[in-house]
Computed example of a mutant assay.
Amino acid sequence: MTDEIVPPTERQCELCGRTDRWDADKQNWVIAVEDGERQVGNKHCIHEWDINGRYNPVEGKPSVGSDADA
């Protein structure tokens, strides 16, 4: 059995709120657009992306702290 690694498709800066989404066609992160507005945050921010223990890149495995752990 082989587990598949699934990369994140969205990230958000914990400091300024900038939100990026992965664009598969461009093979790059792009600034998210919500309600017609680009979620740019602060252009001078050194972004601190919300990478933590809750995201699990292994498909089919429960995330840390999920209800599956109870």
Rank of each mutant, 00 (worst) to 15 (best):
G65C: 05
E59H: 03
P57A: 02
R18H: 09
P7Q: 04
G60M: 02
I46Y: 14
G41F: 02
V40H: 08
I31H: 05
I51N: 09
E14C: 13
D25E: 14
V40C: 10
G53M: 12
Q12E: 11
R21W: 05
N52F: 00
Y55E: 00
A70S: 14
K26R: 15
T2M: 13
C13F: 06
D35G: 09
P8R: 08
P57L: 03
D25H: 08
P62E: 01
V58Y: 00
R18K: 14
N52W: 02
P8K: 12
N42W: 13
V6K: 01
T2R: 11
C13E: 05
I46W: 14
P57I: 00
S63T: 04
D3M: 02
D20V: 04
W49V: 07
G65M: 09
K61D: 02
A70Y: 08
H47A: 14
W49M: 10
E4Q: 12
E10W: 03
M1L: 10
N52E: 05
Q39F: 06
V33Y: 01
V6G: 00
D69M: 08
G36R: 03
G60H: 02
Q39D: 13
G17A: 10
D3C: 02
P57W: 01
G65L: 09
R11S: 09
D69T: 10
E10M: 11
C45D: 09
E48R: 12
K61C: 00
Q12C: 12
E14Q: 15
R54A: 14
C16E: 12
Q39I: 10
W29P: 11
V33C: 07
H47Q: 07
V40L: 06
T2P: 09
R11E: 04
P57K: 01
S63E: 07
A70R: 10
H47C: 15
E34P: 03
G60I: 00
I46M: 14
V33W: 01
D50P: 05
E34N: 11
D35T: 08
C13V: 07
N56M: 06
D23P: 08
W22F: 11
E37P: 00
E34S: 14
K61A: 06
N28I: 01
L15G: 13
I5K: 09
G36Y: 04
V6T: 05
E37Y: 01
E4F: 07
E14V: 13
Q27H: 12
V40T: 12
V58G: 00
H44W: 07
G17D: 12
R38G: 03
G60Q: 01
E14I: 10
Y55W: 10
R21S: 03
E14K: 13
L15E: 15
Q39G: 10
D67C: 02
E4L: 10
N28P: 02
Q12T: 13
E48I: 09
V40N: 09
G36N: 01
V64Y: 11
G36F: 04
H44P: 00
I31F: 05
R54C: 11
E14P: 08
A32V: 02
C13P: 11
H44D: 15
A70N: 13
Q39S: 13
W29M: 08
G65P: 13
C13S: 10
D67I: 07
D69H: 11
K61N: 03
C13W: 08
P62Q: 00
K43S: 15
K61G: 01
G17L: 10
V40W: 03
P7K: 05
G65V: 05
G65F: 07
N42P: 12
R11G: 03
A68V: 02
V33E: 14
G65H: 09
C16L: 07
T2A: 13
D50F: 06
